[in-house]
């Protein structure tokens, strides 16, 4: 968000400009600088980083988390939170693989999994928006239920799909560019466009910025909020089928930590947990940052034990920067 509150007084000069606009620029583009610096640093130490093979690999590997970050961006922009995505993602993957093991066509498997994701999203949206349970608790609770259901269905065994066409979505490519990566980029662009330019996107920003003012302006706040969980559910479904296809199998609790990766992507990008401020390009940059750091550890042969440490510092640092720059911006805005 750029807020041009007024022209500068003539004598303010460079210092005045930095005092007034520096915090805003830092807050808006700091994360871009960070990514650029990181990419240059990693490439300088290992030129393989910027090869197409490596980029394609990263896209493929991060497609599920990146796609769920799209839904999470929607949810967080309304001031909500979806902690059920790891469990939901497993349930969707298991749905696809289970049907695949039973001999259903890949299209059938994928559509069913996406349908399950949508239903889960509708349930979450209902719990948070219609019943009014705190999103944090509602989605932790629904996440447990989803995990439990997945365990019961699978009896904690993996479903394995033999049909090679089932693996095309996750493993196929055009000239090395993986389908999963295309899906990730395509969905991010579409999701970002809807958010930034559509009427629906404007509702999300308005509801996240001030729910009551939006309602009194005739916007259906509850429905708007609920719908973001459905978007998140849809993303769980798509992420689930990509993983099921990549592995040609699925089981309960595929990757319980993926929820933290997804939240990290959105928050490190600079989307505010208070709602109303943020955007999809931010989540794209956040994804780039987290993916690059993870990749750097293997490329540069660093001790992997430091990886969590690095991620942790980045999250805390990003949020501290956010709070700090906002405080400076507010100070400049009082004038």
């Amino acid at each position: 968000m750029t807020a041009e509150t007024g022209r500068l007084a003539g004598g303010a000069g460079v210092r005045g400009f930095l005092v007034q606009h520096g915090p805003g620029i830092l807050r808006t583009y700091g994360i871009v600088f960070a990514l650029v610096v990181l990419v240059i640093g990693v490439t300088a130490n290992n030129p393989t980083f910027l090869t197409s093979t490596n980029i394609y690999n990263m896209l493929s590997q991060w497609a599920p988390a990146g796609i769920m970050a799209i839904g999470m961006t929607y949810v967080i922009l309304t001031g909500g939170f979806d902690l059920s995505i790891a469990a939901g993602y497993s349930l969707c993957a298991v749905t696809a693989a289970g049907l695949g093991q039973g001999g259903a066509s890949p299209a059938m498997c994928f559509l069913a999994a996406i349908g399950v994701g949508l239903v889960l999203g509708i349930v979450n949206g209902g719990l948070v928006s219609l019943i009014g349970i705190n999103p944090f608790i509602a989605t932790v609770g629904s996440g447990f239920i989803m995990s439990g259901v997945t365990l019961l269905i699978t009896d904690n065994k993996a479903y394995i799909v033999d049909d090679p066409s089932f693996a095309t979505l996750g493993g196929g490519d055009i000239g090395g560019f993986p389908y999963a990566g295309m899906l990730l980029i395509g969905l991010m662009v579409i999701g970002g466009f809807i958010l930034a330019r559509s009427v629906y996107g404007q509702w999300i920003y308005a509801v996240g910025g001030n729910r009551e003012a939006s309602r009194l302006s005739g916007i259906r706040s509850q429905l708007t909020e609920a719908s973001t969980y459905v978007v998140s559910g849809l993303c769980m479904g798509i992420a689930g089928i990509i993983t099921a296809s990549q592995l040609s199998s699925a089981q309960a609790d595929i990757d319980p930590d993926i929820v933290f990766d997804v939240i990290t992507i959105v928050v490190v990008g600079g989307t505010s947990l208070a709602g109303g401020i943020g955007s999809m390009w931010r989540s794209a940059i956040g994804l780039g940052l987290i993916a690059t750091i993870t990749n750097a550890f293997s490329l540069l042969d660093l001790n992997p034990f430091y990886q969590d440490l690095a991620k942790g510092f980045i999250i805390v640092g990003a949020l501290a920067l956010d709070v700090w720059s906002r405080r400076l911006a507010r100070r400049a805005a009082i004038a």
């Binding site: 308005a206 001030n210 003012a213 939006s214 109303g276 401020i277």
Partner: peptide, 19 residues
């Protein structure tokens, strides 16, 4: 609390009822 989305600019606020 009820009239405006304070973090959004004037244009956005004024057009809220009629995006």
């Amino acid at each position: 609390g009820q009239g405006l989305v304070l973090i959004q600019n004037g244009s956005v606020n004024v057009t809220l009822p009629d995006i």
